[in-house]
Write a protein that binds this DNA or RNA. Sequence first.
RNA 1: GGGUAGGUUCCGGAGCGGUCAAACGGGGCGGACUGUAAAUCCGCUGGCUUACGCCUUCGCAGGUUCGAAUCCUGCCCUGCCCA
Length: 399
Amino acid sequence: MREFPNPEDQMEVLCRGCEKILTPEELRQKLAERRPLRVKLGVDPTSPDIHLGHTVALAKMRQFQDLGHTGVLILGSFTAMIGDPTGRSVTRPQLTKEEVLANAATYQEQAFKVLDFERTEVVFNGDWFFKMSYEEVLRLNSLVTMQQMLQREDFRERIERGHPIRAHEIQYPIMQGWDSVMVRADVELGGTDQLFNVLVGRDFQAHQGQPLQVAMLMPILVGTDGTQKMSKSLGNAIGVTEEPEQMFGKIMSIPDSALRQYYELLLGETLDPNAHPMEQKKNLAYRIVARFHSHAAAKAALDNFVTRFSKRDLATAELPKFTPPPNLSTTALSLTAAAYESCFGLTPSRSEIRRLIQGGSVQWNGKKLTNPNATISITDGGVLKLDKIRAVRIIPQKS
RNA sequence: GGGUAGGUUCCGGAGCGGUCAAACGGGGCGGACUGUAAAUCCGCUGGCUUACGCCUUCGCAGGUUCGAAUCCUGCCCUGCCCA
């Protein structure tokens, strides 16, 4: 049996960065029991990737693990199909069982970039919810009131605006609460927006005669737009599996105003108010890339960033290579379209590319191409800049 | 079940027989500036086309008309009030 550090020392580490703890006193008491606490974090595999926003709570769980506690990672194989209505003004699209399970697999793998495998229990809430009878569901429902459920900000707002709330949506907090009972959670981690759901868990535990879980809520990380919560569906997320270059770039593009928050939530550090924001951002980007890839990758990404964007030296920068197929017409339009597709997997319509070119986005060796139909005489190593952040190096096919 | 108001392009929201690929705002993208920041200014924002132009879109299906997002019929969906 492992020796746990003294509860007060643990408190010091664990409370750091938390926005809200209900209640610190309860946590202290649990720590004083000197046993491994069961620390719950529920994630819904609604999309296959996790992003930096998710890692905030994962990192907190890791801190618990490093102190000897047990992380209980609940993959919401069932709840993902319902969709958490938290912070939503629209009903979530429901996923199929297959989609959810596939997502769960990759999700799990990614979570272990942060978590300690040895001290993690992974469970699927479908294990109990898929088996529940209607009768049991009703019984569970009778434990809460409609008014409690509808008190939630997001529901209230929808009611006010005349937007529909489907009956299944109010089940979400109920299910999340039941999860806590099923895993006998001592602590539940989540973002501040999870307060309501976590409290339902406490009610259920009380009802079942279990000790109440402590709620530890982390601030919500904003996305690359610096305003809204990081979320894949809002398109402002930085995924943990993104390529080093891309990850680095996205971090560089966050507004300065979000920098402090990123430092606190991702690095657990306070920002030096005297340092230049850009330098701090580079430091942040470097460390995040190093965390999810490697120091070598981070160094390379930094160097390339400096060459490409600070020195604006596309000629020597590391760029994706593009070899135009032999039968491809060498007009600006066709070449750009092919480069987007083969190097970035993007398939903008030809009209869209035409507009980009006419708008001056596309450059060939530093010169704007404004005529979509102009023919480009390809040279070995020539640089085709597609837009603000994308460029490719042309390598003609050897004949 | 009854009454009533609605369903428009990513979102909000105009349009109410031709001049509508559809005002305006937001968001997004691009350009200038810059630190891939912020602010500001400018442009773009259905598809195909070198272009004239053609094609698909206004909940769904039919219909009336030379012509429909706009009128008619049926259906589906949503809010609100009543039960």
